[in-house]
């Protein structure tokens, strides 16, 4: 299993300087990829812009959206942005797409929230219809229709986070969907988790805030924050056992030393 690290594009106080320095260190470190999140109505750096900047100062790591909320952009614009990052990075881009979970993002984008699934399917058909060779496409979501969409159009599955057994169960479903759609081989399986090794309280507060729109579930998500070396190691082992191919560990505090702290734990 490969391990990637998230870039701080949604954590409080993250600026361009931090994001670029973070990407530079990750490129030098043991990480196989850097990944970004996507939120419209939240203080954050736009994911394709963030990865374009990261592309310019890295040479090795894969760049990924984990995930980008597809329907917020028109299909043609989404394809244009994705292809731009792929071109700028020399085919190092993995496009993870899903419908996201926030209604207010859709309102702000002026996009119909009710038809988000169908919209994402049309975007994927458009993207794939262009023959996007060399750009890996992942799709997320846990419902049957979402898994079916993944197997119909994507190269693999982007899991939304949770304990290893949740990932294992989702991976089985993703493989079943893959087989059901008659796709050859196996889907690529990517997982993710949150961590904070320095100021763990601040990280957990951020998660509560970031997920406050889920109401009481924010506490549960925040409780999943990996705040000790032991917790990270158990998590990594659990994901590897469950057949994860690439695990992205996402930061929850805007502290550049988190990169080394994580590298040390993984060493």
């Amino acid at each position: 299993m490969r391990i990637g690290i998230g870039l701080p594009n949604t954590t409080p106080g993250a600026d361009g300087t931090l994001l670029l320095e973070w990407a530079r260190r990750a490129d030098a470190g043991p990480f196989s990829s850097v990944a970004v999140l996507d939120r419209l109505v939240y203080d954050s750096i736009e994911p394709f812009a963030a990865l374009s900047a990261a592309a310019a100062i890295t040479s090795r790591v894969r760049l990924a959206t984990m995930i980008a909320i597809g329907p917020l952009r028109g299909a043609a614009m989404l394809a244009k942005q994705a292809e731009a990052v792929n071109t700028l990075s020399g085919n190092r881009f993995t496009l993870g797409l899903a419908v996201g979970a926030r209604r207010d993002d859709y309102t702000a984008a002026g996009v119909d929230h009710r038809t988000r699934g169908a919209t994402l399917s049309e975007q994927l058909a458009y993207l794939r219809g262009r023959g996007t060779d060399g750009m890996q496409v992942l799709v997320g979501g846990s419902s049957g229709p979402a898994l079916q969409r993944m197997a119909r159009y994507a190269d693999g599955y982007a899991h939304g986070g949770g304990p290893p057994r949740a990932f294992a169960s989702a991976a089985t479903k993703a493989r079943a969907a893959w087989s059901d759609l008659g796709r050859p081989g196996e889907p690529a399986l990517w997982g993710q988790g949150y961590f904070a090794l320095g100021d763990t309280e601040r990280g957990t507060d951020y998660l509560r805030d970031y997920y406050s729109f889920t109401g009481p579930f924010a506490t549960q998500i925040a409780a999943g924050n990996l705040t000790t070396a032991r917790a990270i190691k158990d998590f990594v082992r659990g994901y590897a056992d469950a057949g994860c191919e690439e695990l992205i560990l996402l930061p929850t505090v805007s502290d550049i030393h988190e990169v080394e702290r994580l590298a040390e734990v993984l060493d």
């Binding site: 049957g144 898994l147 089985t172 079943a176 059901d180």
Partner: peptide, 16 residues
């Protein structure tokens, strides 16, 4: 089962 139309509602798991 399913696939009559592309947007069907399968519930994938082992032995579904």
């Amino acid at each position: 089962a399913g696939h009559t139309v592309p947007n069907s509602q399968p519930e994938y798991r082992r032995g579904y």
